[in-house]
Amino acid sequence: MTNPAEVKNLYKTYRSGGWFASRKENKPVLQDVSLSLGEREILGLVGESGCGKSTLAKVLLGLEDYQSGSVKVEGLELKELDKAGFKRLRRRLQVVFQDPYSSLDPRMSVRQILCEPWDIHGLHKDRAKRKKTLEELVRSVGLDPAHLDRYPHEFSGGQRQRVALARALALEPRVLVADEPVSALDVSVQAQILNLLKDVSRARALSMLFISHDFAVARFLCDRIAVMYQGRIVECAPARTLLDNPQHPYTRALLDAVPSPDPSARKDFEPAVLKSSVRREQCSCPYAPRCRYYRAACNRPFALTDDGKGHWCACALKPFNKSQTAERFHGGTHERND
């Protein structure tokens, strides 16, 4: 059976330097990215800003071009699709963006926003049926059908994100890409939207690529989590395994930086140190200059490898196995004193 979405050996570069730049450079943003999204799976993509996670989403949605590799949605190679084929695919592949303030047209009422996809694809032409479907759709995201003739500015952020989700679901897609859908929302509303995303994805048997910078949110929602650093996937595993037993030093550093909501477990935030002695060009690991476990082995090329249980990690050392602690590699000298 084909996976709903699949990315293989994807490379993408951005041209940097404008018209007047003396030297134009190709800046790599995605390097050898391979990921597959399973049937009814919610795959989390976590990383810092600028790591390429949104670019990957855009490539998957066909909104950005790519240099080499393969991007397949429902078994169809995006590059080989013509315009009509792409339009057909769009019905099965939808997106919710981060900012509900800028992703909804301020001059369209909610009714117009939600009916537009149907008009484009020529669906639900019967007026009575359309009215009924529209009301069901609106209720399924927790909005009141009485508010259909309101405009986006009359809604709060959480409600707007519900509208954006309803628009994405209008075409009954199989694959949903959610690019940081809750990070612009208030804490008390965030929980509502997360619950809604979970319910909706189950009820509609959706496969979802969920992009986030928040591990806690990813843990709640996702089946599997992939961690990205500088355009590469550095670790990918089932959510629980990844968070309870992170293998890559970068994942570890990210998890350490998450503040704990418990005043008695207060930790002294330790700033990450950038070792300027390690030159990026000489090592094959992009994280080496920031890594506290850097060793000569990091200079040799290595790939994302599997431990046999679906835990993929791109680290030459893999220092955090429960059986083999960091001490084994460093004699305890680099252990943190926390």
Binding site: V187, S188, Q190, A191, L194, N195, K198, D214, F215, A216, V217, R219, F220, A239, R240, L243, L255, V258, S260, P261
Partner: peptide, 12 residues
């Protein structure tokens, strides 16, 4: 409604 990093919750 704080999402926990430590344990998986079914609903928030």
């Amino acid at each position: 409604s704080l999402v926990s990093l430590k344990e998986k919750t079914e609903r928030l």
